[in-house]
Design a binder for these strands. Structure first.
Lengths: 237, 237
DNA sequence: CTAGAATTAAAACGAACGTTTGAATTAGAG
DNA sequence: CTCTAATTCAAACGTTCGTTTTAATTCTAG
């Protein structure tokens, strides 16, 4: 059997498992989902999941990788493009933020039948307690995060780097929580009964963008920085 | 046996279970923690947990309630106090934000041996996939959220209420993610090896506060609002 | 068509799970 | 002290978990 035909025959089962796993992991979390519910939801045999992916952990990684690769490649491409166009000059913060967070929302919302689901899965995954997930996400994001941090440092030369790292951190949190959608605190209750899901995404992006930029460019807090702390501040290279 | 002596004798076991559960739930999540690891960590018999709390779900609720009650009562008290002092005039956004988010960080950080742990547990709990946790948090937070939303509406009369609700939502996300601490993406890597944990908390508050206020007061996004959407916007009463 | 690899299918494995049971132990009230 | 209720304890319950095994089936290259 050739490689090409393998992929064709596997594609059905593999992708059905990935789709079902994406949905179940989003709805019930990694620990809350079982291989049995995933495979039965996918309409395939239980053993097929272990045959194609090896283990539940590997399945989770495959679910995440399928979408994250696309998103992170697009993030890199857009930042390269913007920096090339700027010709050595620092980028505007709004451009950087849009490349990073805007890409996430746009790409994830674009992909038919799964983008929305993945977006919410990602929001939960970022705070997932499982060690292997945190390790995986860390390695998966290392390059792109380093790239964007450097871009922000150049973009905001007067802001301490430690402060930028903190605010990037806060922005990630606001975004991850925003896209989780199902508001655990029911802050937003009667939600889009008449309208489609797409419309929510459309409006989420500009709203979130305004918030993130406002936070990123907020006045610096007044903190007494001790000498020792300044020396050990993160990422002051 | 009198009620008082009951509480005294139960206190040891009950609180040891609560402390251990708080720690395990924080470290491994609700689904990732077992009654066996919790009770063995607490140094008590397995059945003691079900005896004192009835079930694993009830144990989780007791863990959350123990700290949330204190925090939310303090939130209510401070807002009452601030509004009484203002004498009918709207409060400044910074005051409201400090009452809500500042109280969380201060009270949780104050409580000896557990405040820090609970803070991180709460960060994860807010995005936990379990249905019963979301339901519990929703009901536990309903009153205080309603109170703070109203205060923000009065504080920012020119900002559409829907926008305020969105930004409250984003602020919750930034905070919950910020206090989760263990950065899943390792954005902050070499972290306070020399310094204690307390110092992180000290600096987190002003940093987070600046970010939240910047986001809250950011320029409004440009969104085309259709008539239908405006009519069904959340919480426009 | 046929040999052989790839895939699917059914069944079972041992381990870990939340919970329950019933006896043993502890502690306070009269 | 004695009786009774509260608590602790060891053991087991039935279920579900991720994974493995082994056989049946499907598909394709030659």
């Amino acid at each position: 059997m050739t490689k090409q035909s393998q992929e064709l025959t596997q594609k059905d089962t593999r992708e059905r498992i990935l789709d079902a796993a994406e949905l179940m992991f989003m709805q019930h979390g990694y620990d809350g989902s079982s291989m049995r519910t995933v495979t039965s939801e996918a309409g395939v045999n239980l053993a097929a999941a272990n045959y194609h992916f090896g283990s539940k952990e590997a399945l989770m990684q495959a679910v995440l990788r399928r979408r994250l690769d696309v998103i992170n490649q697009e993030r890199m491409r857009l930042l390269d493009e913007a920096e090339a166009k700027a010709g050595g000059k620092p980028l505007k913060p709004s451009v950087i933020i849009d490349c990073f967070f805007g890409t996430l929302l746009r790409v994830a919302a674009d992909q038919k039948a799964g983008g929305e689901t993945f977006l919410r899965l990602l929001g939960r995954t970022i705070t997932d307690p499982s060690d292997f997930i945190r390790t995986f996400m860390s390695s998966e994001y290392a390059d792109v995060l380093e790239r964007y941090k450097e871009a922000l440092f150049r973009s905001l030369p007067d802001v301490p780097k430690a402060e930028i790292v903190w605010r990037f951190h806060f922005m990630l949190g606001a975004t991850s929580y925003a896209i989780t959608g199902t508001d655990s605190l029911r802050l937003v209750t009667d939600w889009q009964v008449d309208e489609g899901v797409a419309e929510q995404e459309e409006n989420l992006l500009p709203r979130l963008m305004s918030f993130l930029l406002g936070g990123l460019r907020a006045p610096l807090p007044k903190i007494e920085i001790s000498v020792e702390e300044a020396a050990s501040a993160p990422f002051v290279k």
